[in-house]
């Protein structure tokens, strides 16, 4: 019974962290059809921003929830203006350019912080369930993810900004004919996407040893979750996150964590082979 509870919590946690990792990438890909391969490095920089802020004596929650998203959002804004702006509509070129950016950021962070692993301790104590102990911070991640998804949904669904963003996403020419500048909207979208990546990186920072190349661990997972999810931002994220999370946890508990990771990747390959346009191109069509 206790074990069942632990497994359920762990599975929900893995699904939540997959959604959290992928959210920033999904916003940028879903809205702008740009694949940001520097996403993992944005998360890594979010983590560094949070850790640096905490070391400077700022409250850990402020550092994670406010400072890291802002810092990474601004970096994203600069990147969008300097590089990505010139490559809209050229999917492969943006992938290559952002890959270059990811190497660049790894190099910069290595120069500034050194090629060492840093970290902060989790601010929430563990919870005991029968014979088992669950990391209390996992609940924090689950809550943050639910709030984040809700926020994205509400902004897109019920604010005027969200309406304009969705309109531009569907027909940018029409939106610009109605007097909205797609350029501005893309810029804002990229800012939000980067900020969400930064938030994700910062939220996960207390759980992982953070080094300049930790971004690489995130990018593949985020990339496949978003691509497997398909065109709808939120439904895609949740559906593919759930599938991958369950597969990963099943094999992790049945065999070993490494097999769990490999099973996730194999599952992604099979899923893409069967549903090459992503899950939401077939199911949940027309949802957000």
């Amino acid at each position: 019974m206790d074990l069942a509870a632990v497994i359920v919590v762990e599975t929900v946690y893995v699904i939540a962290s997959l959604v959290l990792i992928s959210a920033g990438l999904a916003i940028v890909f879903g809205m702008m059809k740009v694949i940001n391969l520097a996403h993992g490095e944005f998360m890594m920089m979010g983590g560094y921003a949070a850790i640096t802020a905490v070391n400077l004596g700022i409250n850990i929650y402020v550092a994670i929830l406010v400072i890291a998203p802002l810092v990474v959002g601004v970096i994203g804004l600069i990147v969008e203006r300097l590089v990505i702006r010139h490559l809209y509509g050229r999917l492969v070129d943006t992938m290559l350019a952002t890959w270059g950016l990811s190497l660049f950021f790894v190099g910069i962070v290595t120069m500034i912080f050194g090629n060492t692993t840093t970290g902060i301790s989790t601010p929430i104590a563990g919870i005991t369930v029968g014979n088992y102990q669950i990391n209390g911070y996992n609940f924090f991640i689950i809550v943050v993810t639910i709030l984040l998804v809700l926020a994205i949904y509400l902004v897109l669904k019920s604010t005027r900004l969200g309406l304009i963003a969705r309109g531009t996403m569907q027909r940018s020419d029409m939106a610009s004919a109605l007097g909205y500048s797609p350029d501005r909207i893309y810029m804002a979208t990229f800012f939000v996407g980067s900020a969400v990546s930064g938030l994700a990186g910062a939220v996960l920072a207390p759980l992982v040893g953070l080094g300049p190349s930790s971004g690489g661990a995130y990018i593949a997972k985020a990339f496949i979750t978003v691509i497997a999810g398909g065109p709808s931002v939120i439904a895609g994220l949740i559906s593919s996150g759930t599938v991958f999370g369950i597969v990963n946890q099943f094999f992790t508990f049945a065999m070993s964590p490494v097999i769990g990771e490999v099973a996730l990747l194999v599952c992604a390959v099979i899923l893409l082979r069967l549903l090459p346009q992503g899950i939401t191109a077939r199911f949940f069509k027309g949802k957000m």
Partner: peptide, 20 residues
């Protein structure tokens, strides 16, 4: 002095932008 991933990254970005 300079980490060489910076150079590699810059080369890729600049080539995609200016000399695709």
């Amino acid at each position: 002095f300079i980490d060489n991933t910076i150079i590699m990254g810059l080369i890729l970005v600049l080539f995609v932008l200016f000399l695709p």
